[in-house]
Design a protein around this nucleic acid. Structure first.
Lengths: 330, 330
DNA sequence: GTGAAAGCGCTAACAA
DNA sequence: TTGTTAGCGCTTTCAC
């Protein structure tokens, strides 16, 4: 049997309360007894039962992170950022894969009411409707969000990022810039499309004369979108709303004998580890994933502390120009 | 304040013991009281405090999964498999990223002694030395292992898988089959190399006359290994110990003007989602990741139940022939 | 079938 | 500075 605080108290010749104090706030205990307790702990191999502690303090020191798809690389580094900050603050991270379903998300949200978690960081907006009306659950959203969502959010400026990417393409001479978007009702996609359109208009181009397809963020959908693209005869550049679709489109292009970047420049969004490894290496908009994660957890911690939190933390993106973009052939 | 079991008991007009029974073993309670309790639970919005329950039963219903690198896609689907089985059995999964360090791994192992977790599934062998001597911690290894490790392991037959891959290359006419291995002290790599060598010898070829480089499983190392490869003048095929390195080598080959598969066939190991998406699509040995995960968790559950467990569960692999391999040009 | 009561291991008033 | 005591919310004997 594992030794308990009682055993330590007996060995050290003090009360359990003193042992507890020696662990939690060593300064509230005399140097001498602290040492006695410490050696008693070492001698017995005692390790506090965190469940009992948490029960008593009615907290769990755990945050749940809801990801829509654990196998989607984009989330991995965000989770890593969250973990880093959480661990340092003495919190554990319970990773919940909602598999893009509201039901699964609910399962993880319920961990709050059963006191198994103190807060939730959601990387998906696929959440029960009730939540959207506002909730008392300590919650932070990252990346995904709803406009005017009454919940603190950490995200990038999707509109600006898209605008910058298009401005870059325009600046190196492109005039026919197609687009493969994500699901069009997704707020992220709305913002990106806005930025895309804005940059076009600024350059005297119009959205309506560009090739435009909608995908679902998957590699496969990028591939199909490219294959199905109409109005792309003189398209010299293609902006994709994420890297996976960009990679899918790139593969489709290659298969069709379209050379990247000679015949077609391709720009992605996210900067997955793989973007760099593609052939050619993908020009993309980097979302600093770890930083987003770290910030989300920081907001969570503030919320736990009762501090005032920013309801909208915007992390800056960066256009990484690699080998998939080049000026159009005249 | 959240309602407790007492509130429910009061509303239902029964004792807390009965409420508890009604939840845990409804058959031990009369139909009538069961219904009373159920409606009282609904009325109050009660949700049991799992920490209190766990404290009382001294279990946590949580397993920790230690991964060496959360951003490594290979592990994602294994974790997903673990989650699926765990959830169904009422267990939570705490994901611990050890970042390839023994210290971090220790942090997660300590969750056991502090009663925050009931068991550990480790996807890495980078563990404290003490553990290797055997441990009382309920533990299961997946993929990685130590030979004659006194801990239940779920893995693939690395030797056989490698052998099959080489036999396939031989069967379509290859005679000069290079290899990019992983860290050579890694048991997995030892096994794969054995299989490689065995198949060569069986075909009347010798290891010593093949190009051979060692990498560290990263994309970058695959790339460099290819660039540094000596004795590869007439090499027509290349076997890489994982997909990441295969993809790295493929990129290097492309850059050198070596056409895949025309000039060089490339075979990987793992079957990452990306293997299929590469250009050309990568021929590789599929490790059924989810299945490995599911099995690991099943072994864990058996262990929890006190059932006898298999100390070595071997999951079968499959050679997926895609577009990166072809007969050599004569 | 149900209730009373003890107690899981810990922390936090309150006293001393 | 330290000890005494109560109790976090639940489950589980042991009676009835």
């Amino acid at each position: 049997m594992m030794p308990t605080i009682k055993d330590v108290a007996r060995i050290a010749g003090v009360s359990t309360a003193t042992v507890s104090r020696a662990m939690i706030s060593p300064d509230k205990v005399s140097e001498k007894t602290r040492l006695k307790v410490e050696s008693a702990i070492a001698e017995s191999g005692f390790s506090p039962n965190v469940m009992a502690r948490n029960l008593r303090r009615s907290e769990s020191k755990t945050v749940v992170v809801i990801v829509p798809d654990i196998a989607n690389m984009f989330f991995a580094n965000i989770v890593r950022g969250i973990q880093a900050v959480a661990l340092q603050a003495g919190y554990k991270v319970l990773l919940g894969d909602s598999i893009h379903t509201v039901e699964q998300a609910k399962v993880y949200l319920d961990l709050i009411s059963s006191k198994q978690a103190d807060g939730v960081i959601s990387l998906t907006a696929e959440l029960p409707k009730e939540i959207r009306q506002g909730t008392t659950i300590p919650m932070v959203m990252a990346c995904e969000y709803f406009p005017s969502f009454p919940i603190p959010t950490v995200r990038v400026d999707n509109q600006l990022a898209a605008k910058n990417a298009i401005e870059y393409l325009v600046s190196i001479g492109h005039r026919k810039i197609g687009c493969i978007s994500g699901p069009k009702q997704n707020p992220i996609c709305v913002a990106r499309k806005d930025g895309y359109q804005q940059a076009l208009e600024q350059a005297g181009l119009s959205l309506s004369e560009q090739a435009f397809e909608e995908g679902d963020f998957s590699f496969q959908s990028g591939y199909s979108a490219f294959m199905n693209m109409s109005n792309h005869e003189d398209m010299t550049a293609l902006f994709c709303f994420n890297d996976m679709m960009a990679l899918g489109a790139m593969k489709a292009a290659l298969q069709q004998g379209v050379k990247v970047p000679d015949d077609l420049s391709i720009v992605g969004f996210d900067d997955l580890a793989f973007a760099e490894f593609a052939s050619p290496a993908l020009t993309t908009i980097r979302q600093p994933q770890e930083e987003i994660g770290r910030n989300a957890m920081k907001v969570m911690l503030k919320r736990f502390n009762g501090d005032r939190v920013n309801f909208d933390t915007v992390i800056s993106t960066q256009l990484l120009v690699r080998s998939s973009t080049a000026p159009p052939k005249t």
